[in-house]
Amino acid sequence: MAKGFCHSCCGIEFMGTMGSHYDLGRFGAERVGFSPRQCDLMMVMGTIAKKMGPVVKQVYLQMAEPRWVMAVGACASSGGIFDTYSVLQGIDQVIPVDVYVPGCPPRPEAIIDGLLRIQDLVGKESLRRREGEHYKALLESYGIQ
């Protein structure tokens, strides 16, 4: 179940991805949850202003372990064309990111590919990921315990 965090053109692409034409439901992601507490994947799609940074982090904190994050599009991944004082230069400055989907905006195929890579991670990584030293250190570096 995915939590969508859409606010720009990437969000529109995601709506296309969810729609009947590309149908993300075929890949086991039928339902987009609107409460982060019920979700295990957060997809951040769109420009995150610096003022939104704490909100992104708060939504991430509200998700229960195990949780994954996908940064969709250039803006969420690196700030994109908005190299300016008010825009967060990539959401990895506030939360750890598992998969980056490039594109401005990415095609629905790219978003599906990103989701499949997340599923790959989910399938292959240890069930006890959150106990791992590496994972703990990573969260520590973001000030999340």
């Binding site: 610096k50 003022k51 940074g53 700030g79 190299d83 300016t84 004082y85 008010s86 825009v87 230069q89």
Partner: peptide
């Protein structure tokens, strides 16, 4: 509009547009 931690006034011309923390 800007984050409260910001310690300058960004539309003054002496400050470059780009984020200097990159």
């Amino acid at each position: 509009l800007n984050v409260e931690e910001m310690d300058y006034h960004p539309l003054r011309k002496e400050f470059p547009l780009e984020d200097q923390t990159r």
